[in-house]
């Protein structure tokens, strides 16, 4: 009796006079209000800028002095052959990068499973600590490292290839436009693999050890244990992350591509996010806005699609 039960606490709450509770609900709101205003200003107010997609807007001239052109900028994507070709090229790069990303999203799973198979505790810890470092440096820094390692005359990579006789003279991987999709996905995993595996390592650590012991008694091999115990244990985590990356199919982010882009590889590296930046930088504000709008629409649709899929398959929503 002396221990307060759920009902007891609830009873105490109910005994607070109604007027005081009314004040509290508003007091709480007022305390949150300044932050909600900040959210509105920086996340919702920019949506009003979509209006620029319907004008022949040129930076520096007030919107009121620029002609309203309706859907002109949306139509150029399909009606102007040069523009269409460019948009298709960018879409091809986006789809290629995202598909490569989805196809390799199993890498951190493999990384985590194999790492737990390592017997030596300190080695496991060492690998995990060191492979996570690249996740914490910016893409500019990744590019700066790549720049030094792959530089033609003094870089270690080109030096080693020359001394092994694999190439005749120094070459510059970063200035080449061929294989850029593969190079980009390779850098992506160099940066994110160790970090991406952390979730799965934690999921594996959460699996009931008795399952393994029971399997051991039954004489299960290492691979059978992985396949029948570890894999089912981490599939829910994998599935959630996979659905989220489907939702982000058109959002590759731009930092990586921005850092690595140059005149030689522009054709194959330009994904949607980078394209928007580049046309904005060329001062075509209305077209950049139009592309952004379509991109947002597609990604909202994909996110809802992924969410519905999640509800159907797992009976749980991801957002």
């Amino acid at each position: 009796m002396g221990v307060p039960t759920e009902e007891g606490l609830h009873g105490v709450q109910l005994s607070v006079p109604p007027r005081r509770r009314l004040q509290n609900k508003h007091r709480l709101f007022l305390m949150a209000l300044p932050f909600l205003v900040v959210t509105f200003i920086f996340y919702y107010l920019p949506v009003s800028g979509w209006i620029y997609a319907f004008y022949d807007f040129i930076p520096g001239i007030p919107l009121s002095d620029t002609p309203f052109v309706g859907l002109k900028w949306f139509r150029t994507m399909v009606s102007n052959p040069t523009q269409t070709a460019e948009v298709l090229r960018v879409l091809r790069n986006t789809v290629a990068m995202s598909t490569l990303g989805l196809a390799t999203s199993v890498f951190p799973v493999i990384f985590a499973i194999l790492l737990t198979e390592i017997k030596s505790g300190w080695y496991r810890k060492f690998v995990q600590t060191m492979t996570t470092i690249p996740n914490f440096i910016s893409w500019i820094l990744v590019y700066a490292l790549a720049f030094s390692l792959f530089s033609v005359d003094s870089g270690v990579v080109s030096g080693i290839l020359v001394s092994l006789g694999l190439v005749d003279e120094g070459f510059n991987l970063l200035a080449s436009g061929s294989h850029i999709w593969l190079t980009m996905i390779a850098w992506y995993w160099w940066k994110s693999l160790g970090w991406g595996a952390i979730l799965y390592l934690a999921a594996i650590a959460g699996i009931d050890q008795e399952l393994y012991e029971a399997a051991e008694v039954d004489g299960a091999s290492r691979f059978r244990k992985i396949w029948h115990i570890t894999v089912p244990g981490i599939i829910p985590t994998f599935f959630v992350l996979l659905l989220l990356s489907i939702g982000n199919f058109v959002n590759n982010g731009m930092e990586q591509y921005f850092a690595f882009q140059n005149a030689m590889n522009k054709d194959t590296i330009e994904v949607l996010d980078l394209y928007v930046y580049n046309i904005a930088f060329a001062n075509n504000f209305p077209f950049a806005t139009a592309v952004s709008m379509l991109k947002s629409a597609v990604s909202v649709l994909l996110l809802f699609g992924a969410n519905t899929l999640s509800r159907l398959v797992r009976d749980e929503s991801i957002i």
């Binding site: 996340y43 107010l45 920019p46 949506v47 800028g49 620029y52 904005a280 952004s292 991109k295």
Partner: peptide
């Protein structure tokens, strides 16, 4: 209020609207 903040993780107006703001 909570949802209106969380949803901004998945949605953005785009670079130019943001810049103009």
């Amino acid at each position: 209020w909570y949802r209106s903040i969380v949803v901004t993780m998945y949605f953005s107006a785009g670079l130019i609207p943001w810049y103009i703001t």
